[in-house]
C-alpha cells in the first residue's frame, strides 16, 4: 500500500512534467500527421497502398520509440533527484516507510507513467492505421479509382495485430531503459546519467555489432568470449526493434505473440534486476 501510494503520486507528478507532455503531444501530433505521408516520401519501390502503410507503420513505431526513449531517460534521470530537490524524500523516509518501499514505488511509478504515455501514443498510432486502412479499402472498392491506381492496389487488412505487438515491444524497452536509468540515478548526477542512459540504449541497440565483433575471424578467443558474454548480459534493445517482422506478417517466422511474451519476460526480469540492485544501493545510501 505504501508502494502503491508512492507510485501513484509519482505518476501524477511525472505526467505533469511539461517536457514530458511536450514529447507526448508532439509524438501524437506527428503520428496523426503521418496520415498524409504517401509513397512520394517513401524510398521504397512503388507498391501502392502497402508501401504507404509500411512508411506509416515504420514512422509510427519509430516516433513512439524515439519519444518514449526520451521520456524514459527524462523520467529515470529526474524522478529520484527531484525528490531530493524538493526535500520530499526526507519527509517520506522520516515516516515509517522502508527504503525499499520508496525505491519500488518510484520504479513502479515510472513504469506506469511510461505505460500511460505509450498507451496514449499507441492508441493514436493504431487508430491512425485503422483510419488509413479504411480509407484505402474505400479507395480500392471504387472501381474507377481502383483502375486508375492500377493493379498495385492491394487489399489491406483493417486491423493488424502485429502493431499491437509492436506497441508492446516498444513499451517493454522503455521499461527496461527507465529502470536502468533509475538505478543509475542513485549513483550519477543527472547530466552524466542522461548520457549514460543514452549510451546504454545505443550499445544495446547495436549489440549485433558487438556480436559480430566477437565473431570476427582471427579474433582473440578470450576477446570473443568476452564479447559473447557481453551480448548475453547487455540489455538487448535490438530485440525489441524488429520492424521487418512486424511489417511483414506474411513472412511469419515466429509466433509474434509468443515472441512478445518472451520479450516481456526478458524485460520484466531486467527491470527486476535493476530494481533489486537499486534497493541494495539505496539501502546504504545517505540521503
Amino acid at each position: 500500500m505504501i508502494i502503491w501510494a508512492i507510485a501513484r503520486t509519482t505518476v501524477g507528478d511525472a505526467l505533469r512534467k511539461k517536457i514530458l507532455q511536450v514529447f507526448i503531444v508532439v509524438a501524437i501530433g506527428l503520428i496523426v500527421l503521418s496520415l498524409s505521408f504517401s509513397q512520394t516520401l517513401s524510398f521504397s519501390s512503388q507498391r501502392g497502398a502497402s508501401s504507404d502503410f509500411m512508411l506509416l507503420k515504420s514512422f509510427g513505431l519509430g516516433m513512439m520509440a524515439l519519444a518514449g526513449i526520451f521520456i524514459s531517460l527524462i523520467l529515470g534521470v529526474t524522478l529520484i533527484p527531484q525528490e531530493f530537490e524538493r526535500r520530499t524524500i526526507y519527509t517520506i523516509l522520516a515516516k515509517p516507510v522502508k527504503r525499499y518501499e520508496f525505491i519500488t514505488g518510484k520504479f513502479l511509478g515510472a513504469i506506469l507513467t511510461l505505460g500511460i504515455a505509450t498507451g496514449l501514443m499507441g492508441i493514436t498510432f493504431i487508430l491512425t492505421i485503422v483510419i488509413k486502412a479504411i480509407g484505402a479499402q474505400q479507395l480500392s472498392a471504387s472501381p474507377t479509382l481502383g483502375q486508375m491506381l492500377g493493379s498495385t492496389t492491394e487489399k489491406v487488412a483493417i486491423f493488424d495485430w502485429n502493431m499491437v505487438w509492436g506497441v508492446i515491444l516498444v513499451y517493454l524497452q522503455f521499461m527496461v531503459l527507465s529502470s536502468i536509468v533509475l538505478l543509475f540515478s542513485l549513483i550519477f548526477t543527472q547530466t552524466v546519467n542522461f548520457f549514460m542512459g543514452a549510451a546504454v540504449y545505443a550499445v544495446g541497440f547495436m549489440s549485433t555489432v558487438v556480436i559480430s565483433l566477437g565473431g570476427a575471424e582471427g579474433a582473440n578467443v578470450a576477446l570473443q568470449l568476452f564479447y559473447k558474454t557481453i551480448s548475453y548480459v547487455l540489455p538487448r534493445f535490438d530485440q525489441f526493434n524488429i520492424p521487418n517482422q512486424l511489417l511483414h506478417p506474411e513472412t511469419q517466422v515466429t509466433n509474434m505473440g509468443a515472441y512478445t511474451g518472451m520479450m516481456a519476460l526478458y524485460g520484466l526480469l531486467y527491470t527486476l534486476l535493476a530494481l533489486v540492485a537499486a534497493i541494495l544501493i539505496f539501502e546504504r545510501k545517505e540521503v
Binding site: 500500500m1 505504501i2 507528478d13 524538493r86 526526507y90 519527509t91 517520506i92 522520516a94 515509517p96
Partner: peptide, 29 residues
C-alpha cells in the same frame, strides 16, 4: 518512526496536488 516526525527546511512537496491530497498521501504512508 511511527512516533516521530520531521519537517525539513523549505519543503516543496508535489505542487500539482492539493493540500488535502498531499496530506492524504502522507497518511497512506
Amino acid at each position: 518512526k511511527q512516533r516521530i516526525s520531521y519537517l525539513p527546511e523549505s519543503p516543496y512537496f508535489y505542487e500539482h496536488m492539493t493540500g488535502a491530497e498531499v496530506l492524504d498521501f502522507y497518511c497512506r504512508l
